[in-house]
């Protein structure tokens, strides 16, 4: 772990709507995530977990507060560089799969590389390597929509790691899966954290999943109410 946190969000507030319909989704929230850490953001539905994750993943801008990425004030960066950070440094796993129907598994997995402008030859090489790692090599040319739920989620994780990110943001990665398949997906994520040192930020309301993370952040009504650490903090 380095001394500079990879993500350092300070005094974040975010409100939706205006006038009487105004709703404060986040109020003065601060969160540090160190390199290689796994952090769970836990809370009830509607508490603001996804909103917080979107802001620290530079997908959304807070009303007030600052977000540092690797020591750099990310919110002051031009839009082009913010896009570049998301493209190169982040991997995303959303609650829904967001797979492009009709496109092949390989094409879905290599989408971040395509956006980055990587040549199709390199994309294919890298895509196949990742699919092999997740035991999906034989499905490379299948249509993504023809896979089972667990396979789809592994495709999604393959897509999240294909650009060798430093952080993976996962919003309810197991929410859509039965407990057995969910377990496989969880294992995959923690393997990435352990083996490759990829930082994990996982939004979940699943206590068991949260417990596997190094640190848990509890959000309630837009405020971080408590934090806890995994008791036997193993390396």
């Amino acid at each position: 772990m380095t001394s500079t946190p990879i993500i350092d969000a300070r005094n974040i507030s975010k409100a939706y709507g205006s006038g009487t319909g105004r709703f404060e989704a986040l109020r003065d929230v601060s969160l540090r995530v160190d390199q290689g850490e796994s952090v769970a953001i836990v809370g009830k539905s509607g508490s603001g977990k996804s909103t917080l994750m979107h802001i620290i993943a530079l997908l959304d801008v807070p009303d007030t507060g600052t977000v540092f990425f690797a020591g750099q004030d990310a919110l002051s960066l031009p839009a082009k560089q913010i896009s570049e950070v998301r493209n190169k440094e982040f991997g995303f796993v959303f609650q829904q799969f967001f797979l492009t129907p009709g496109a092949s598994v390989l094409d879905n997995v290599t989408l971040p590389l395509k956006i980055a402008g990587v040549s199709s030859k390199l994309r294919k090489e890298r895509g196949l390597a990742v699919l092999k790692q997740f035991e999906l090599a034989d499905k490379a040319s299948n249509r993504a929509t023809d896979l089972s739920g667990g396979q789809k989620q592994r495709v999604v994780i393959s897509r999240a790691v294909v650009n060798k990110p430093s952080v993976i943001f996962a919003d309810e990665p197991t929410g859509n899966l039965d407990s057995a398949t969910g377990k496989v997906v969880e294992d995959t994520l923690f393997d990435l954290n352990q083996d490759l040192g990829i930082t994990l930020v996982i939004v979940t309301h699943d206590e068991d999943l949260a417990a596997r993370c190094d640190r848990q952040v509890f959000v309630h009504d837009g405020v971080i109410v408590s934090e806890s650490r995994k008791p036997e903090h193993a390396a």
């Binding site: 896009s83 570049e84 998301r86 493209n87 995303f92 967001f98 989408l111 956006i115």
Partner: peptide, 13 residues
């Protein structure tokens, strides 16, 4: 819409 959102999230301008 969601595909566009995904591509933008992944850094497409």
């Amino acid at each position: 819409t969601r595909e566009i959102g995904l591509m933008k999230a992944m850094g497409m301008r």
